[in-house]
């Protein structure tokens, strides 16, 4: 699971004038050749900073993303669904572990990242600030939010930073289970009773606007974003990712006889692009800045986990080991 539409920092100067031009040229040539950048390689400050931000946001999204689904484990309909949902939630938390480690190789400690999550400084995917009212909401998340995540993650796995790509390869392999499981759940609802179909349709109606927000607002082409694309930090525009998602999944939703709450949604056969009502970006901004239905609760759950786990961490304090950045 992963938050789309990374909020890249727009800084006035990209700082490149302070970088050694020769090293910068070698760095860019390596990326151009399709080689990965490894932790011990020289890299521009801007590259390091943006990758930390991006991988950290991704890791937080996995942790927070496990919460809305995690609450449905106890109420999952039947043993098989419970088993699958537990496995999925375990995967999501495992993904966060892999991603935090990848970010750590760039020099930010795990402690600092967890701190920045619970003190509200770091962002995570906005979609997890919405509530999962019914089992059908949980099905929507498993299938379609994960599908959106996979679109982003497959693109990012072709990026330039070695440790992030290797983490994403492992993650994508596990996500294929999430996607199939989620689709299976939705098909079950779609082919079930009238009441089940209604529940599923209501969940689609609730989640469609945040799903459209998921990939982020249209990104304006700036010098900054051009550099990040050239360095293979950003692998495609938010609109491209959204279009790819719509192309792959809208037909699958329609196939099950459901409707999507946007009368303007259609594929333009001439351009090959999907047309839709412009999502409400004011709401997106409001929610990402803390005023969503679940922001406070999501962070409170994390903070409480930290507080309640405190005695465990105290008991485990072991001066015989040492924290260092992972090697690769």
């Amino acid at each position: 699971m992963y938050g789309g539409g990374n909020t890249f920092e727009h800084i006035k100067s990209n700082g490149l004038e302070n970088e050694d031009p020769e090293k910068l040229a070698q760095f860019e040539a390596r990326i151009e050749r399709g080689e990965k950048i490894e932790p011990n390689d020289w890299m521009p400050q801007l590259y390091r900073k943006q990758l930390i931000r991006m991988i950290e946001q991704h890791a937080h999204s996995e942790i927070i993303g496990a919460l809305p689904e995690g609450t449905w484990i106890t109420r999952a309909p039947g043993f098989k669904r419970k088993l699958a949902l537990m496995a999925k939630v375990q995967d999501e938390v495992g993904h966060a572990q892999l991603l935090y480690s990848a970010a750590e190789t760039l020099g930010k400690s795990r402690e600092q990242m967890i701190d920045d999550l619970i003190n509200g400084k770091s962002k995570y995917s906005n979609i997890f600030n919405y509530p999962a009212f019914t089992w059908a909401d949980s099905c929507f998340i498993s299938w379609l939010v994960d599908a959106g995540a996979i679109v982003n993650q497959l693109a990012n796995a072709r990026g330039s930073y070695g440790p992030y790509c290797r983490a994403l390869d492992r993650i994508c392999a596990e996500e294929s289970f999430h996607l199939k499981y989620g689709h299976h759940c939705v098909i079950h609802m779609a082919t079930g009773t009238e009441k089940q179909r209604e529940m599923m349709q209501a969940a689609i109606n609730r989640w469609w606007p945040p799903m459209m927000h998921f990939f982020g607002p249209s990104d304006k082409i700036s010098v900054h974003s051009e550099i990040l694309m050239r360095w293979k930090v950003k692998m495609g525009s938010n609109d491209d990712m959204r279009n790819q998602f719509l192309d792959m999944y809208v037909p699958k939703i329609w196939e099950l006889g459901f409707t999507i709450p946007d009368e303007n949604l259609r594929k333009n056969e001439v351009t090959g692009r999907w047309e839709y009502t412009e999502p409400d970006w004011e709401e997106f901004k409001r929610v990402i800045n803390g005023d969503g239905p679940c922001n406070k609760e999501r962070l409170a759950v994390r903070r409480t986990a930290e507080e309640r786990g405190r005695w465990v961490r105290e008991a485990l304090l072991a001066p015989k080991t040492e924290y260092v950045a992972p090697l690769a």
Partner: peptide, 29 residues
């Protein structure tokens, strides 16, 4: 909004302001 999370609505999990945690879980690598 009333919480849908059993940990919140059954365990009285507080939703007060957020603070940083003590530096405790920086375990060995």
């Amino acid at each position: 909004m009333e919480s849908l999370d059993p940990r919140v609505n059954r365990l009285n999990l507080s939703t007060t302001e957020l603070t940083s945690k003590a530096p405790l879980d920086q375990l060995g690598t």
